[in-house]
């Protein structure tokens, strides 16, 4: 690291702490609420129910990721569905 970059690198840590807290607490207030269900767990469960109603999926083949941002959060659900491709191809053939 050069002298100049180390000189400019020094930035105060308090604003970082404030921003991290604001994002974290915005989510925890929803999630914890007044002891009600965790929002994420609920979403997970209900989405799984809907998928299971139509296709048989393996629990291990479901990936759920949450990316929490200040403005918006992304709930990413990755479901590996077996058999669908075959059926689609069969449908094309017919």
């Amino acid at each position: 690291m050069t002298f100049l970059s180390s000189l400019f690198k020094r930035r105060s840590s308090a604003p970082v702490a404030r921003d991290r807290l604001q994002i974290l607490l915005a989510h925890e207030r929803i999630a914890v609420g007044d002891g009600k269900d965790d929002l994420l767990a609920k979403l997970h469960r209900e989405i799984m129910e809907v998928i299971k109603r139509h296709v048989a999926v393996d629990q291990d083949k479901v990936q759920i990721k949450m990316d929490r941002g200040a403005q918006c959060s992304v709930l990413e659900i990755d479901v590996e569905v077996p058999g669908l491709t075959d059926r689609a191809e069969n449908a094309k053939k017919d």
């Binding site: 974290l24 607490l25 207030r29 914890v32 007044d34 002891g35």
Partner: peptide, 19 residues
């Protein structure tokens, strides 16, 4: 004035308002 203390205080405020 420290992150873990502020987070826990937020949780306690929630409990004061509900339980």
């Amino acid at each position: 004035p420290e992150v873990s203390s502020v987070r826990d205080s937020d949780r306690i405020i929630g409990m004061l308002d509900s339980t």
